[in-house]
Every structure is written in C-alpha cells, then in structure tokens.
Amino acid sequence: MRYGMVIDLKRCVGCYGCQLSCKAENGTPPGVLFARLAKREFGCFPDTQLVFLPLLCFHCAEAPCVSVCPTGASHYREGGVVDIDAEACVGCRACMQACPYGARYFNEDQREYFPGQGLTPYEEARYSDANRGIVMKCNFCIDRVNAGLEPACVANCAARARVFGDLDDPESEVWRLIETRGGAPLEPELGTKPSVYYLPP
C-alpha cells in the first residue's frame, strides 16, 4: 500500500479550492500552506499563457526531509505518508532545506488572521500551541483517509482534477490514469520518488 495522488493539469482551473479547503480542514495559521496553487503568466497580449501548478507535499518514497531530521520527528506513516511528530520537532528547519518541493513551512509564532483583534473563535479552536516553533506540512489528511474519506483537497476540487488512491494497486484509478495519460512526478531526476503525479495539460 502506497498512498498517492494524481493531479490532472488539463482539468485544473486554478480556482484555489484545494488551498482553501486545506486551510479549512487543517486550520493552518497565516503563512502555512499545506496545499497551494502556483500560478504564472507568460508572454505578452495576445500571445499569452497562464500556467497553474497545484503543489503539496509529494510524500516521497525516498524523502530527503526524513533522512536529515535530527530527532526523527519527520517520519513515514502507514501507506508511505510522510508526517511530522509535533512533539518531537525542534524547529531546526533542516527538512525545509532538504525538501526540493517547498512543501514545508516553519510556524515561528502563533499569528492571527486579523491582527489586533485577537484570535477568532475558529482560530482558537483550530490553532494549537503544540504547532508553535515547529515545521508543519501536509499529511494527505491521513485522519480523514483512515476514516474512509478522501483528503480535503481531493474531496473539494471543483474540477475533479485530483484523484487519490493506492499507487501499488494496478486496479486503482490513480494507477490507470498514470498509465493511460502518461503521468509523471515533478523533478523525477532528484531521485526522491514522489507519490504525487501530474497528468499533462
């Protein structure tokens, strides 16, 4: 069993739904984006191009962030999911330098979204002091997955551009899409063996 995700760049419309639903699900503070959408415009009118690239932790099978962690806080969970033990992280940020995909964020202090007005009831409920001074990242919403649900970004993708499943199962939808559409991970030459594949636009 190896959890993985396929993102269809042909279907992605750059609506930021993944980014927002992830924030709602995980209650991440400002400056921490487990899922984010990189968007870039190229060219000059009328010859222009708009490129979207939804990004998240790629849960690499050979994750460099795990091997550089001095405490073992970065670790593999069931299904090859890379997660952080918030109680063990010392906030050295070595994993951030090791990750080639920019999937990790340092939560220096607990910031509110509306400065000067204190934490909103939502923020009070969702923020945890255990996350202060440590690195945070996506864990494929593993609690949802264990409960039989899809990760929030998959469940809330309006264009159904994201598919979640078992990369080791030849019968799975992710396997079929990668095989038939020629899915490829980002920067495969780095040798990290990511579990997130992109289908060409």
Binding site: P70, A94, F106
Partner: peptide, 21 residues
C-alpha cells in the same frame, strides 16, 4: 537559540542519518 523549540534539544541524538544530530 536558533531552534524553534530549544527545550527539546535532547532529542537530537538520533545520529542515524542526520548530520545535525
């Protein structure tokens, strides 16, 4: 002083593969 959680420094003895450790 650089660490986000310096009080947990004792956890950094995991010298298996980390050069920081």
């Amino acid at each position: 002083l650089f660490l986000g959680r310096p009080e947990r420094f004792w956890r950094m003895f995991r010298a298996k593969s980390s050069w920081i450790a």
